[in-house]
Design a binder for these strands. Structure first.
Lengths: 196, 196
DNA sequence: AAGTTGACATACGTTCCGTATTTCATTATC
DNA sequence: GATAATGAAATACGGAACGTATGTCAACTT
């Protein structure tokens, strides 16, 4: 059947990243065994170290993938709102809800920063952060917001949202706590609105 | 000289925690060797595992200590401001500045959540979080804030502040970025203020 | 003063990561 | 179309670290 070399390599990369998502999410980065992980997809550590350099490299690839998916989802949600301001609030709420996913929490919010350092230094450039930064910049240009540094504001909003999600997920009754978090987030965010 | 048993044990605990702060801050949790760490203070792993159970136990003790120091410092700073509202802003700014300390960042903000889970579940109960929660409750009682869930608000503020600090520290020029972060934080926080 | 406790040391087994070497299919060359 | 070269992945190896299980000796008890 003559599978080309590039094809199989790409397939292996995909398989390893998928296995990484599963193992890192279920066991956490430190406890995830690269021997098990690679064996699960019919490979050995040789393939892993050839493709990703080391264990961190695989985590970086996994984080980049998840981060991209989150940003895409947020963009989609935001695009369905008319008012640019409502649009931003929806984006923030979306991040809180997405961060309730155990996979996102364990990999992106907990282990990611610990292993890869602060998100602003990630190779993926953290798509989520850049997306909210662009939203802020647009609102600034329209004069909807008080004059603030766009990057600082984006970072604060992102931190607040993702951190709130961790709190919600760790709470005894997420279903009842989530609305409180979203409500408080919207209230807090209104501080950026220019006085009318 | 008859050193009592409790005395030496307490001394050893103190020595191990101090060594833990140093090693965890300098090398990160994962790379910190318990053999080296204990040898540095003239002990062996036996003492460590007897006193703290495992490596995580030592980290928990270290985090509790640092968290306590941060909360105490914040309380002191906040007490020197007159207006309760200014008091809270000062508290938030203080957290941002304290989180610039590499020790705080590496141990409490990066490795802490990864190894011990979300701060709201920490044994120390996260003194910092509780402190800001109390501040919020007080302001709520005085009618200074819009009606919001105190815990949610505290969590959002804490997340925003500490996350901002990570961003500032990772930036190329912290000295010029820090004021932006604090300014944006104050602007954002004003969203909680009741309409006058 | 003898027995007991328990804090700590020591020895050991297991696991896991990263590298160095090897293999062999695929691609390129003649 | 046969042979040489490339490189993706396998395998073998070394080293380090964690946690446990056992031993030991000083400090406390009665």
């Amino acid at each position: 059947m003559a599978r080309s070399r590039q094809e199989t390599m790409e397939e292996n990369r995909v398989k390893l990243i998928a296995a990484g998502r599963k193992a890192f999410a279920e066991k956490g980065y430190a406890a995830a065994s690269m021997d098990e992980l690679t064996a699960d997809v019919g490979l050995t550590r040789g393939a892993l170290y050839h493709n990703f350099g080391d264990k961190r490299g695989l985590l970086a690839a996994v984080v980049t993938e998840i981060d991209g998916e989150m940003a895409a989802r947020a963009k989609q949600i935001a695009s369905s709102a008319g008012d640019p301001w409502q649009c931003m609030l929806a984006e923030g709420s979306a991040y809180i809800e997405m961060a309730l996913d155990p996979e996102v929490q364990r990999i992106v919010l907990l282990d990611g920063p610990s292993v890869l350092g602060d998100p602003s230094k990630w190779p993926s450039q953290n798509s989520c952060l850049q997306a909210t930064k662009r939203s802020v910049e647009q609102l600034l240009a329209e004069g909807v917001l008080k004059p603030v540094d766009a990057e600082a504001a984006a970072r604060l909003l992102s931190g607040a949202a993702l951190n709130a999600a961790l709190w919600v997920a760790a709470s005894d009754d997420p279903k009842v706590v989530l609305p409180k978090a979203i409500d408080a987030f919207k209230t807090l965010t209104s501080g950026l609105l220019a006085d009318r």
